[in-house]
């Protein structure tokens, strides 16, 4: 049985390579059928904002790419409720079907996976 990996993505989408790198790990792992989860934390929740238009800053559409995660077999998707609330994002208007977790649930989530990496 392959080890499960939780990828914590905590950087905003257009500021640097981190958000893209976290997604690439998830897509590559998913293509190999690894048991993966992905958690959006801190500024990482901005990746989930609806109706982003990254072509305005000459970037590839990370938000569209994120939609492919379930197709790549990555169906365990989570977001930090505290991070969303602090950033004024509405849990019901996100671009991905994530499960929103409180702090205690985040602790349990991290405990459940064999390995964790935070980008």
């Amino acid at each position: 049985m392959a080890k499960s990996l939780l990828i914590i993505s905590r950087q905003a989408p257009w500021s640097g390579p981190s958000a893209r790198e976290a997604l690439d790990i998830a897509l590559a792992g998913g293509a190999f059928d690894l048991p993966l989860g992905m958690l959006f934390l801190d500024d990482g929740v901005f990746q989930l904002a609806a109706a982003q238009q990254p072509d305005a800053v000459q970037q590839k559409n990370l938000a569209a790419n994120l939609q492919a995660l379930p197709m790549f077999g990555v169906e365990e998707l989570f977001a930090c409720g505290h991070s969303l609330a602090r950033r004024g994002l509405d849990n019901d208007a996100l671009s991905l079907p994530v499960e929103v977790l409180d702090n205690a649930a985040l602790t349990a989530l991290i405990a459940r996976f064999d390995q964790v990496v935070t980008l």
């Binding site: 905590r10 934390l41 801190d42 500024d43 930090c80 505290h82 991070s83 702090n103 985040l106 602790t107 349990a108 991290i110 405990a111």
Partner: peptide, 14 residues
């Protein structure tokens, strides 16, 4: 925010 977030989700055995 790393430290603040880490303290928020740190488990009792972590």
């Amino acid at each position: 925010e790393r430290l603040a977030s880490c303290l928020r989700l740190l488990g009792p055995q972590d």
